[in-house]
């Protein structure tokens, strides 16, 4: 088990953002965190990044309590944020170099990792381009490359396909699936777009801060009469929105 979230509650003042959230991610698994806007996906990610303090419950990463362990534990986590978090004034290479530095990687390690990721994402020819001049698809690739530089075991993607066209979205998803296979990465992909979930994925449905389902997409689909994931999802979400 790589990540274990147990009975986590989180409140913003009087508003409950997460209620008794429990989930577990196995090493090398691909998990789609499915939920409408405002479901609590970003709040959950902020807890997994230690941006917010843990108010109640427990989060274990690689067997260690995430919030009481030393900050070293964050080197296990790679993150792609919902909004692009690249430095627009810097080049692709400079953005990646900066990330390596703040991860404490030596110059030699950095150069090696950057070379690998640039090749993997077909960005080698663009490495001296300013991020400001890249299109959305390229920027997402750079963000993904950046998140992988320090070789994390858990990759968190918070609605990474927002603002991308269909082709770029499909390509990005394919990249991440490939990465998971090649690197045995554990991936938690937050989305509200059902098309991004494939039959073999594990799905965690989050709505109004509660986990409504945590199972294989195919089994989840079987819950509805039509055996369609969209219907099962609508039924679940409908229940909480009623």
């Amino acid at each position: 088990m790589l990540l274990e979230v147990k009975h986590v509650d989180f409140n913003f003042g009087d508003r409950q953002a997460l209620v008794d959230v429990c989930l577990s991610l196995q090493v090398g698994g691909f998990y789609a965190l499915l939920g409408p806007n405002g479901a609590g996906k970003s709040t959950l990610f902020a807890l997994l990044n230690r941006f917010y303090p843990l108010q109640h419950g427990s989060i274990k990463l690689a067997g260690k309590e995430l919030h009481s362990a030393s900050s070293d534990i964050l080197s296990n986590v790679g993150m792609v944020f919902q909004q692009s978090a690249l430095d627009l004034d810097l080049t692709i290479y400079e953005n990646l170099r900066y990330h390596c530095a703040i991860q404490g990687m030596s110059s030699k390690q950095s150069e090696q990792a950057i070379k690998e990721q640039l090749q993997r994402f077909d960005l080698s020819d663009h490495k001296l381009r300013q991020v400001r001049h890249l299109n959305g698809g390229h920027r997402r690739r750079v963000e993904l490359a950046r998140a992988l530089l320090h070789k994390p075991s858990l990759l968190l993607l918070d609605e990474p396909s927002v603002g991308l066209d269909r082709a770029s979205r499909t390509q990005l998803l394919a990249y991440v699936h490939l990465l998971r296979e090649e690197e045995n990465l554990t991936v938690l992909w937050a989305t509200h777009i059902l098309e991004e979930v494939s039959a073999t994925d594990d799905v965690i449905v989050l709505s109004k801060g509660r986990v409504l389902a945590h199972e294989n997409a195919q089994r989840l689909a079987q819950r509805s009469a039509s055996a369609m994931l969209a219907d099962s999802y609508a039924d679940l979400i409908g229940e909480t929105h009623a």
Binding site: N49, F51, S71, D72, I73, L74, S75, V77, M79, F81, Q83, S84, A85, L86, D87, L88, H99, I102, Q103, G104, R146
Partner: peptide, 18 residues
Amino acid sequence: EMGSMKVLLMSPLPRGYL
């Protein structure tokens, strides 16, 4: 606002030092 601060704060070094 752009998220670069979040990237820095995800470093495995203590936030006070960052």
